Simulated assay, not measured.
Amino acid sequence: MKRNVSMLLLCLAASLLGIGCGPGFKLNTPDGFVELEDQEEYAFRATTAQGVVMSVRVEPNRPKGNLSFWTDAIDLKLRNIGYTAEASREVKTKSGATGKQLRYTRTVYDRPHIFWLTVFVTDADVFVLETGGDAREFDKAKDDVTKAIEGFVPG
């Protein structure tokens, strides 16, 4: 069991670096974004011309954990690799799904960057919506990103 938890945490952390699964959800591409094709490491990925990116990863909910477990595990991993936690909040989608959004900052090439990680958990899957970019550009896109997240339907 401990090995399974370690493997899933490793997979979720690795997913931040490019490993992912196929889709089982509905998400409308935010205004101002274009969907990127052939993104084998993501179930969905889109970007603005200025480099703000939104992606979705899907991992099996094994070992079976709840929203609190997975957000705590992901938060610990991100803090350990240098992200600074800024806030967390509950997210309720129009479809009725409840998730949790973790908000972080990190300096990249001497520029502040914003990173939102929104997690939804079903019996079968853990859905991780990642959105981030340079703080100046992210601020311009955050309303459209928020609308897209509110419209997310986990499958």
Rank of each mutant, 00 (worst) to 15 (best):
L10A: 14
R106Q: 14
R103V: 14
A135Y: 01
F152A: 05
M7Y: 08
Y104A: 10
K92S: 04
P30D: 00
L16S: 07
A14V: 01
P30Y: 00
G18A: 05
E37R: 15
F127H: 14
L129Q: 04
A46I: 08
K147C: 04
G155Y: 06
L27F: 12
D72Q: 11
M1S: 09
N80D: 09
D144Y: 01
G96N: 03
V56P: 03
L102C: 11
A73D: 03
E90Q: 10
P63I: 02
P60I: 02
L27A: 05
T131S: 15
P60G: 09
G51V: 06
R57T: 15
M54A: 10
P30C: 00
S95Y: 08
R45A: 09
L10K: 10
T105W: 01
A49Y: 03
R3S: 13
F115E: 13
L10E: 10
L78H: 06
Y83G: 00
L17G: 11
G18Y: 01
F127L: 09
G96H: 06
L12A: 08
R89G: 15
A141W: 00
Y83D: 00
G20V: 07
V126W: 00
R136N: 10
G96W: 04
T47L: 07
K26D: 06
T93N: 13
G22Y: 03
F69K: 03
L67Y: 10
L78F: 08
R136D: 15
F127T: 14
S55N: 05
E90N: 09
L8R: 11
L16N: 12
K140N: 06
D134Y: 04
C11K: 13
D110P: 01
L17F: 05
A13K: 02
S6K: 12
A148N: 07
V91R: 11
T93F: 06
F115V: 12
S55T: 14
P23F: 04
S6R: 02
R57H: 11
A148P: 02
K147H: 09
V58Y: 03
T131P: 02
D143Q: 11
D72R: 13
E35I: 07
R106M: 02
N28V: 08
S6G: 07
T47V: 13
